[in-house]
Amino acid sequence: MNIFRLAGDMTHLFSVLVLLLKIHTIKSCAGISLKTQELYAIVFATRYLDIFTNYISLYNTIMKLIFLGSSFSIVWYMRRHKIVRRSYDKDQDTFRHYFLMLPCLILALIINEKFTFREVMWTFSLYLEAVAILPQLVLLQRTRNIDNLTGQYVFLLGAYRAFYILNWIYRYFTEEHFVHWITWISGLVQTLLYADFFYYYFQSWKNNVKLELPA
């Protein structure tokens, strides 16, 4: 464990807590893409298949349970909760996210570290996570006034993978074992997808104006 990875995990945790806070306290999911939340639930479900079979550390297991629990409960809230679901903007959240899954699965079957079920599922979850934010970014461009919590959620979600890239650089120089190039590239693509959001987020913070993405 290193400071970059811990910062990444904490940032990721905060992004999830900000979202749960928004949905649970103000009972609203306005501006949040259910498609992105569903993709994230699938990302965690396919990445943490071995949560009960191989034990890495208490921290690792607890964090996996938190990410699994929170992502599925957010999907549940947005689909089933009688108040929250009313604020879900389904006519705007129209990204065909299932079309994202197939290419990721095919790519994972072709390009992976080892052709085993767990390894392919893990690679699939990496590719899927890289593009999971797309429905949310599209929705943000359609949603005129993005509320602060939603902006913070997306910002933290983007920042966590940027910290992971620093973690991979750190591990590359300090440990003989370093992560596979597949991880590097998916993490880089994922972070780059946030680039324009980060730009507008920073602008809105610097000029102290409401965050707005150009359509």
Partner: peptide
Amino acid sequence: DDFDDDHDEL
């Protein structure tokens, strides 16, 4: 096995 030490991150 090697899956574990390769994927010790979240």
